[in-house]
Each structure stands twice: as C-alpha cells, then as structure tokens.
C-alpha cells in the first residue's frame, strides 16, 4: 500500500516537472493582454484625434 502511494507521488512529482517545461499558453495570453493594453493604452480607449496628426511628421529620432 505504502509502495503504491509512493509510486503515485513520484509519478505526480515527475508529471509536475514535465508540465512546467511546457509553454503555459493561458498565462502567456494573459501576460500578452496586459502588455498590449499598456502599449496601446486601451484602458482610456478614446485617444485625442490631435495626436493622430503628428504621425505624418514621422520619427525624428532616426
């Protein structure tokens, strides 16, 4: 009985390690959404239209 339980525990532990090697797709999606919201500033969804005009100026830094 104890041997069987030890086997189960060992299998579970190995399985956990294996799972961690796989890419956590759901967590990645959540992380991506958080970053996209910040970069695109989606919280305050209505950007002032005035900002749109300075795109025509292009990137002065380059």
């Amino acid at each position: 009985m104890r041997l069987a339980l030890a086997a189960v525990l060992l299998t579970t532990a190995t399985a956990c390690v294996t799972i961690n090697i796989y890419f956590p797709a759901a967590a990645a999606e959540k992380a991506a959404d958080r970053i996209i919201e910040e970069v695109w500033q989606l919280q305050e969804s209505s950007r002032p239209a005035a900002e749109a005009s300075d795109a025509a100026e292009g990137e002065s830094k380059q």
């Binding site: 967590a27 970053i35 970069v39 795109a55």
Partner: peptide
C-alpha cells in the same frame, strides 16, 4: 507556479515604455 508569466523585468519595462511612446505615431498609420 503556473498562474502567471513574469513580465516585470527592467528590460521588459523599458521596451514597453518605448513602444508606448512610439504608438502615438503608429496609431494613425
């Protein structure tokens, strides 16, 4: 351990900041 992905490193923060600034010029495009 699988709940979240680490996205708070200084390098990631710097990239996010740069991209956020650039977005003002990219959005109209």
């Amino acid at each position: 351990a699988q709940g979240n992905l680490e996205i708070d490193s200084p390098a990631i923060a710097a990239l996010k900041g740069a991209m956020q600034q650039r977005h003002a010029r990219l959005a109209p495009l």
